[in-house]
Simulated scan of single mutants.
Amino acid sequence: MRTKTSDTYKKEILEQYKREKGGEMNNYLFKPTRKQIKEACLWLLHRRNEKYDEGILNRFFQFKEGENKAYAIERTHGDKFKPIINFLTGETKSTTPANLELISWLIDFKKRPLSIYLKTNPKPEDEHETTLLNVKQITVKNEVEKINIPETQVIQRTNKSITIISQINPSLKITTIVSL
């Protein structure tokens, strides 16, 4: 399993963008321009209201208290969107956290913002590998339960191995480690 970091967050957002070309917003984001990103923000402003979206928008646009958000977005200078375009088109490899969060909002990346992403369980590298691991764990567990040797006990169990100690007679102890 992969550990989730800000780098994996950035990578997954970019992968979703490349895979879906903006998803629902592909009319604006397929070949993004400054004007199209601004228009996408205006169109989504009252349509995409997940729990943390207001904070994402406030961080990027830096709305003033009581300010009309649509008006504030309309008067945002187009240059503010240029780093987003550069990132999405591959001209740059990184962007600011505020830009990345706005992109996550625009493409509807479900595990946004970063603080929520980091709290979600890491996904397995390979789904098949996880299934095999679960089958092996069940098989080994069943086999250990079938062992009918006196004084046999599992002394350590992890997701990758089981350590069993068996005492055949008073002078002979056998330790077995089974890798899953």
Rank of each mutant, 00 (worst) to 15 (best):
T3Q: 14
S6P: 09
D7L: 12
T8A: 05
T8S: 14
K10L: 12
E12F: 10
I13S: 08
L14T: 02
E15Y: 13
Q16E: 12
Y17V: 02
K18W: 12
K21R: 10
G23Q: 07
G23Y: 04
N26W: 10
N26L: 13
N27A: 13
Y28E: 06
Y28S: 03
L29S: 02
F30W: 06
K31N: 15
Q36S: 13
E39Y: 05
W43I: 05
L44I: 15
L44K: 13
H46C: 06
R47L: 12
G55K: 09
I56R: 01
I56Y: 09
N58C: 15
R59G: 06
F60A: 00
F60D: 00
Q62G: 07
K64E: 05
E65F: 03
N68G: 01
K69C: 00
A70T: 08
A70P: 02
Y71P: 01
Y71R: 10
I73R: 00
R75L: 02
H77G: 07
G78E: 05
D79E: 02
K80A: 09
F81C: 05
P83G: 05
N86A: 07
F87L: 09
L88I: 06
L88H: 02
K93L: 10
K93W: 04
S94A: 12
T95I: 13
T95Q: 03
A98N: 11
A98H: 07
N99Y: 13
E101L: 04
E101F: 07
E101N: 06
L102T: 10
I103E: 04
I103P: 02
S104L: 03
W105E: 00
R112T: 01
L114D: 01
L118Y: 02
K119P: 02
T120F: 14
N121F: 11
P122R: 08
K123D: 09
K123H: 11
P124G: 01
D126V: 09
E127G: 11
E127A: 14
H128D: 11
T130W: 13
T131C: 09
T131K: 12
L133N: 01
L133C: 02
K136T: 11
K141Q: 12
K141R: 14
N142H: 05
V144E: 06
I155V: 14
T158L: 08
K160P: 01
S161V: 09
T163L: 15
I164K: 05
I164C: 06
I164G: 06
I165H: 05
I168P: 02
N169C: 11
L172E: 15
L172A: 14
K173Y: 09
T176L: 15
T176S: 15
I177W: 06
I177D: 14
I177C: 14
S179Y: 04
